[in-house]
């Protein structure tokens, strides 16, 4: 598979989850595991351009696919506009859910455009759970990031 623009190959057990492959084989530990019920969204990555829960996908199912993790967003040390927006708008406190939030946020903008409304952002973040912020600044950050991505 291709991970963050790099061609990767490895032998894995059939039962290995994509998130385990990313974290344990590739040491890309920005993708988190926050639950075991596919509900929290801390593990969201992009596979072939769309958001998926890497804890609910087998590594072998992503064989040959294009995977983007949080580590693949910044270019030459410059944060992706959505990462920058989370920083600027205090869209995080402990930061555990943030990688998944950012990956989902980019997916939301990709599907709904940079002028996505607040109701849509809130609804589409249903699959990402944050226990610190109360979501308010996350929603603000997604809007700011959306504008910067569009511009």
């Amino acid at each position: 598979m291709n991970v963050n623009g790099e061609s990767i190959s490895g032998e894995v057990e059939d039962r290995m989850l994509l998130v385990e492959f990313l974290r344990e084989h590739l040491r890309l530990t920005g993708t988190h595991v926050g639950c075991d019920t596919s509900q929290c969204g801390a593990c969201v990555v992009h596979v072939n351009g769309v958001s998926v829960k890497s804890c609910t996908t087998l590594a072998v199912q992503a064989e040959g696919g294009d995977v983007t993790t949080i580590e693949g967003l910044a270019i030459n040390g410059e944060l992706h506009p959505m990462q920058q927006a989370f920083k600027d708008n205090h869209g995080l406190q402990c930061g555990f859910c943030t990688p998944g939030m950012v990956m989902s946020a980019i997916d939301i903008v990709n599907r709904n455009g940079s002028d996505v409304d607040e109701a849509t952002v809130r609804k589409e973040l249903e699959g990402n759970i944050c226990r610190c912020t109360g979501y308010h600044n996350i929603v603000k950050a997604v809007h700011a990031g959306a504008k910067n991505m569009g511009g």
Binding site: V52, K53, T57, S104, E126, G127
Partner: peptide, 9 residues
């Protein structure tokens, strides 16, 4: 159904 990431698979 579910959430966007679940709906993608």
């Amino acid at each position: 159904i579910g959430d966007p990431a679940v709906r993608n698979r």
